[in-house]
């Protein structure tokens, strides 16, 4: 990368040759580069089976499609036992559907529980990476075993559970990037540090500390 200012290859070779003389230049070159002869080149074609990552904007979505309707059967068979028939979550596994966006935001502002509510319909910015997650990692007990069209269909079914797409919608590499995700415009990139404590050393507070104790006994005693 050009931002890395020193090329250790060039400089190292020159320095090595000067120090050791021409007869050992071969050793010096190997020593200088540290990488001579290591690894193999590979074509992008050969990488294709691994190159599955889908970007937020739909880049690298595989060709294929699946409708809301087609998603019901695989969802009920492979997903509902953990995520609930309606996406409400089950047995402690994540819910697909949480509070709708306005209620979710209201909860955040009021300090009510929003953590357990994070879901596809209130905390997922871009539909293509929902497809990526399902295709890559689901179903949980047999990760990455759903086909492309099946993954589009399940994605579509989940989006419909969240009332994000209509029941006649077909998810595909053509349509997914344009799905309007409810949470998309609420994301703000990190601006920390967001607190500014001072290194006070003495008489830092006038009042006595108000102390709240523990509710659960430690298990490692």
């Amino acid at each position: 990368m050009s931002k890395l200012k020193t090329s250790k290859f060039g400089l190292g070779l020159a320095a090595g040759a000067m120090a050791l003389g021409l007869s050992t230049a071969g050793i010096a070159a190997e020593h200088a580069s540290g990488f001579n002869g290591i690894g193999k080149n590979i074509t992008e074609k050969a990488i294709e089976p691994w190159d599955i990552s889908v970007f937020y904007d739909g880049t690298n979505l595989p060709k294929g499609s699946g409708s809301v309707q087609a998603g019901q059967e695989p969802y009920d068979a492979q997903c509902a036992m953990c995520h609930g028939a309606f996406g409400e979550g089950a047995n402690g596994y994540p819910k697909m559907m949480g509070d709708p966006m306005p209620q979710f935001i209201k909860s955040l502002k009021q300090g009510l529980d929003g953590v357990g509510n994070r879901a596809v319909n209130n905390a997922w910015g871009h539909a293509p990476t929902l497809f990526d997650m399902i295709k890559r990692h689901m179903p949980f007990y047999a990760p990455g075993t759903m086909g492309v069209d099946e993954s589009y269909a399940v994605t579509c079914y989940v989006l419909n559970l969240g009332m994000i797409v209509d029941s006649d919608f077909v998810c595909s590499d053509e349509t997914l990037a344009d799905v309007d995700m409810p949470a998309r415009d609420y994301y703000v990139t990190d601006t920390r540090p967001d607190v500014n404590n001072q290194r006070c050393m003495s008489d830092c507070y006038d009042e006595a500390p108000k102390v709240v104790g523990a509710a659960v006994t430690g298990v490692s005693q």
Binding site: S53, V54, F55, Y56, F104, I105, L108, K109, G111, G114, V115, R118, A119, V120, A123, W124, G125, H126, T129, L130, D132, M133, H137, A183, Y186, Y187, V188, T189, D190, T191
Partner: peptide, 20 residues
């Protein structure tokens, strides 16, 4: 990518109604 880990999981819902 804005993958699952970056949009649904390791995010911080804040009291001003934004998601960090």
């Amino acid at each position: 990518l804005v993958t699952y880990q970056e949009t649904r999981h390791y995010i911080e819902p804040l009291p001003d109604g934004t998601i960090r």
